[in-house]
């Protein structure tokens, strides 16, 4: 690992100022960034820890009933405290392993936008709002392809707001070596329709499956998926699974998620 300076500000304003320096980078739980630094795939001159910022910690319910999660809240805290949105708490409880969940944060996961990560599917299916130090971004505009998001340089995710669906479920087919999703499907049913977000499958990162959403909005049952399929043409193919296998899993995991939610 190349050396860097370390700073741990206690307010969002101080963190934003520190991130204004050239080649400074935010540090959430470090569960992705530290392994990346070990491989020398990044070489920041300064890491700005967000763990000391109390306004970015914790879970609460907003005036509109949405569940608000501080950007530096670790997965274990979401698992324990997001009881108002059980499918989200359960998603957090199955990220990685206990030690990863004690450090890794929701802001870090969404900023990283790993194509196989769990929270991007939860945020996209729930129609969450990503709140940063300067603006609010709808999930539909936020995810812009593998490891790519709408965040600007030095912009910090301070909070994530999740509208709570009537019914929801996340089904993850675990890639056993990494514990990430080989394919993960998050289904959320709201009064005005169903949203389906798929992670782990596409070369473009998390995406919504419009056809399944339409079918499930008309008939919220696993049968509604019968006969629907996704093309594997633009899907990830690696030693853990071919593109065709992943495409098949998308439908299977969608059915399971609907069955578990209904």
């Amino acid at each position: 690992m190349y050396n860097f300076e370390f700073a741990k500000p206690s307010s969002v304003a101080d963190a934003v100022a520190a991130l204004g320096e050239e080649d400074a980078q935010a540090l959430g739980g470090g569960q992705t960034l530290i392994p990346t630094l070990k491989q020398r795939l990044a070489s920041p001159t300064k890491l700005v820890s967000l763990k000391g910022i109390s306004e970015m910690q914790g879970v609460c319910t907003g005036d509109d009933g949405a569940l608000c999660i501080g950007g530096a809240t670790c997965h274990a805290t979401v698992a324990a405290e997001a009881g108002a949105y059980p499918a989200l708490a359960s998603t957090a409880a199955h990220i990685g392993d206990p030690a990863v969940r004690n450090r890794g944060t929701i802001g870090g996961s969404l900023a990283n936008n790993d194509p196989s990560a769990c929270y991007p599917a939860a945020a996209l299916a729930s129609g969450a709002t990503i709140v940063t130090n300067s603006r609010e971004i709808a999930a539909d505009d936020y995810f812009q392809g593998m490891f790519t998001t709408a965040l600007d340089e030095g912009e910090i995710i301070t909070e994530v707001r999740f509208p709570v669906p009537e019914k929801a479920n996340y089904q993850k087919f675990v890639q056993p070596a990494s514990r990430f999703a080989l394919v993960g499907v998050y289904v959320a049913k709201f009064a005005d329709g169903v949203r389906v977000a798929i992670t782990g499958a596409s070369n473009d990162g998390v995406f919504r499956w419009a056809e399944a959403e339409a079918a499930l909005s008309a008939n919220f049952s696993a049968d509604a998926i019968d006969g629907l399929s996704l093309s594997g043409d633009d899907m990830i193919s690696d030693l853990h699974g071919t593109d065709a296998y992943r495409a098949h899993l998308c439908a299977v995991m969608t059915k399971r998620a609907v069955a578990a939610a209904a």
Binding site: F6, L47, S49, K51, A76, V100, N102, R103
Partner: peptide
């Protein structure tokens, strides 16, 4: 709480 000490900075 349990953490992986190889994935946490000493400064933290």
């Amino acid at each position: 709480v349990a953490v992986k000490s190889c994935t946490m900075l000493a400064a933290e």
